[in-house]
């Protein structure tokens, strides 16, 4: 009995996802169609990969809301380079650019110990500004054969990019739980002063999580290109709005030191099923944004309330 209760409380997010999935399949005739299933899995992969990167940042007790802008910038550079240098070099350059974005954001946070939210807010605008400038505010489209080929590889109704996301999540899970680096992140997120006294290289670790997120944001931007074939400076404007709830719902806390990659995996799947269900009930786009904002608000307030509820002020 106790075992069952523990199982339910540990896996409530997967169970909730399953429950919504089943009830949607029963109540809505269009939900469990191959077309919608493919769309659901496609929409998971790009933002899901970025959410894994965001998990690293949150675990370390930091915050970086520039993921949408990094996706836009790297996707624009990727699409501009694609016809010139070919697929693999363009991808490597875009991934490197993502890392550079993370290095810049992390520099201000790790070296000056500035509040991460205000730094990432500034950098978010700067990266988007650069993306808009280099593309002259026009979309860059390209039906490159390699991109087309990747988008057409399917296993059943599931596109290959979804398996890339699962793989990324598993690797991240391995790094976070089985390596010293991953354990150090939990320690730093739990209590940064203790980590400092333990002799951990706090500055390096803080810096590294921003680089990890930059890398995953770039990868997510490229994955997004395999189904959109067009990048613009305004790509992923709703990135933070979509990605933050996925990670927090999964069970990673803003306070740091709590959570994991597998939890984020389930959070991503649950939120995407909810977003998909909203479209199924043909909610207006503006109303959908409002519902998403309210979900984000409730998640933030609940998380912070649970963290601070024993404090008087």
């Amino acid at each position: 009995m106790i075992k069952t209760r523990k199982f339910i409380s540990d896996s409530r997010i997967p169970l909730l996802a399953l429950a919504i999935f089943v009830s949607m399949s029963l109540t809505n005739e269009y939900f469990f169609k191959p077309v919608n299933m493919t769309g659901l899995f496609e929409s998971i992969s790009a933002y899901g990969i970025v959410a894994i990167g965001f998990t690293f940042v949150l675990l370390c007790g930091q915050l970086d809301i520039s993921m949408g802008s990094v996706m836009a910038l790297t996707a624009c550079v990727f699409m501009m380079l694609l016809p010139i240098v070919g697929f693999v070099p363009a991808m490597l350059i875009a991934l490197m650019l993502g890392c550079v974005c993370g290095v810049i954001t992390g520099f201000f946070v790790a070296t000056f110990r500035l509040p991460p939210f205000i730094v990432s807010m500034t950098m978010q605008l700067a990266y988007r500004g650069i993306a808009l400038t280099i593309t002259s505010s026009t979309p860059v489209s390209n039906m490159h054969p390699t991109l087309l080929a990747i988008s057409e590889v399917m296993i059943g109704p599931v596109p290959i990019t979804f398996f890339l996301f699962i793989m990324v999540a598993l690797i991240a899970h391995y790094v976070l739980t089985q390596t010293q680096y991953g354990r150090n992140l939990y320690v730093i997120g739990g209590n940064i002063n203790v980590a400092d006294n333990l002799g951990l290289h706090v500055k390096g670790h803080l810096w590294s999580v921003f680089v990890v997120q930059g890398f995953f944001a770039a990868l997510g931007g490229i994955v997004m290109m395999t189904r959109m074939f067009s990048a613009s400076g305004n790509l992923a404007l709703d990135g933070p709005l979509n990605i933050i709830p996925m990670v927090i719902v999964g069970g990673t806390a803003f306070s740091g030191g709590k959570g994991g990659a597998i939890k984020t995996l389930w959070g991503v799947i649950l939120m995407n099923i909810i977003y998909n269900a909203m479209s199924m009930f043909s909610l207006q786009a503006n109303m959908q944004e409002m519902v998403k904002g309210l979900i984000l608000l409730i998640i933030i307030v609940a998380d912070k309330y649970m963290e601070n509820r024993f404090q008087k002020v």
Binding site: L63, I65, P115, F117, I118, M121, P240, L241, I244, F254, N286, M287, E289, M290, K292, G293, L294, L296, L297, I300, V301, K304, Y305, N308, R309, Q311, K312, V313
Partner: peptide, 22 residues
Amino acid sequence: VTRGGSGEAFLITLATGMVGTA
């Protein structure tokens, strides 16, 4: 409710801002 400082305020107002725009 959240007894927050500037970090909490940033996240909360980010979300209320999205709701306000919507």
